[in-house]
Simulated assay, not measured.
Amino acid sequence: MLDTAARQVLARPLADLARLVDHPRVSPNRLTLLGLATGLASAAAAAGHLWWWALALWWFSRAMDGLDGPLARRRRAAAHTPETGAGGFLDITADFTVYGATVVGVAIGATSQHGASWLPFMAVLLAYYVNGAAFLAFSSIAERTGRQRDDGRSLSFLGGLAEGTETIIVHSLWLAFPAHADVIATLWAAVVGVSAVQRIVAGARDLA
């Protein structure tokens, strides 16, 4: 829901930052992998009750995730080369891995330290799974049938109530307030569930 507005606000700062880090040793894929590594470290820190470390690592991970695309576009523009899709594939795979790992890490930390229930976190993972299946299936079929949505990203994204910006905010909240992580997860699972239904309906309508 907030992704379009967030991308408009952050486009210029990220482009400027991409210019600053544009060095031969810094590649978009290395930024993606750095975001993956720090995202997994955030999950491990949460599991070990190192909540503020987990939050800092989460933000750094998402900053790398936001920076790899602008750097890739800058490199392609300079070299006049087309997009291959390999970077986008790596990026979305890393995102799914980090999102899932963070849910598990928070669940381990919150249940062991604060006696939280596992059920809300399992519901979040299920909702993530359905959402991912819906938009990845749509992207693949839309590409094959010429009905893709082009917003500058590697895949055709179906909008919804829960998008990347909301995910960053909610994951930040349960890392900052782990004693209430299960309550946050319960509400988030409901929001992501609604978003999954939205994507299924929208995808079916677009492809009909």
Results as ranks from 00 to 15, higher is better:
1 M>F: 07
2 L>E: 03
3 D>P: 07
4 T>Y: 03
4 T>A: 14
5 A>M: 12
10 L>W: 11
11 A>P: 00
11 A>D: 14
13 P>M: 05
14 L>Q: 09
16 D>K: 10
16 D>S: 11
18 A>V: 08
21 V>E: 03
21 V>T: 08
22 D>C: 03
24 P>M: 01
26 V>N: 06
26 V>Q: 04
28 P>Y: 09
29 N>Y: 04
31 L>Y: 11
34 L>C: 10
35 G>A: 08
37 A>R: 09
39 G>T: 12
40 L>G: 06
41 A>K: 14
41 A>Q: 09
43 A>N: 08
46 A>L: 13
49 H>K: 05
51 W>Q: 07
52 W>Q: 12
53 W>Y: 08
54 A>I: 04
54 A>D: 05
55 L>N: 03
55 L>V: 11
56 A>N: 13
58 W>K: 10
60 F>D: 00
60 F>P: 00
63 A>G: 09
63 A>V: 15
64 M>Q: 11
66 G>F: 10
67 L>M: 10
68 D>N: 15
68 D>Y: 13
69 G>F: 11
70 P>E: 05
73 R>E: 09
73 R>T: 04
75 R>W: 08
76 R>L: 12
77 A>N: 12
83 E>N: 09
85 G>E: 11
85 G>N: 08
86 A>K: 11
86 A>P: 00
89 F>M: 12
90 L>N: 02
90 L>V: 05
91 D>K: 12
93 T>N: 07
95 D>N: 03
96 F>Y: 14
99 Y>N: 11
101 A>W: 07
106 V>Q: 06
107 A>L: 10
107 A>V: 07
109 G>L: 12
110 A>T: 15
110 A>C: 03
112 S>Y: 04
116 A>D: 15
118 W>K: 03
118 W>E: 05
122 M>T: 01
122 M>N: 00
123 A>K: 01
127 A>I: 06
130 V>K: 05
130 V>W: 04
137 A>P: 00
140 S>M: 10
145 T>G: 00
146 G>Y: 02
148 Q>W: 03
151 D>N: 15
153 R>F: 11
153 R>L: 14
155 L>P: 01
155 L>S: 04
156 S>H: 02
160 G>S: 08
161 L>A: 13
163 E>G: 12
163 E>F: 06
165 T>F: 13
168 I>C: 05
168 I>P: 04
170 V>M: 14
170 V>P: 04
178 P>R: 03
178 P>I: 04
179 A>W: 14
185 A>G: 06
185 A>M: 06
187 L>D: 01
188 W>C: 00
190 A>W: 02
194 V>S: 00
194 V>F: 08
196 A>E: 02
197 V>S: 00
199 R>Y: 01
200 I>C: 03
201 V>W: 08
202 A>E: 09
202 A>N: 10
202 A>D: 09
204 A>I: 02
205 R>N: 04
205 R>H: 09
206 D>R: 14
207 L>Q: 07
208 A>Q: 12
208 A>E: 02
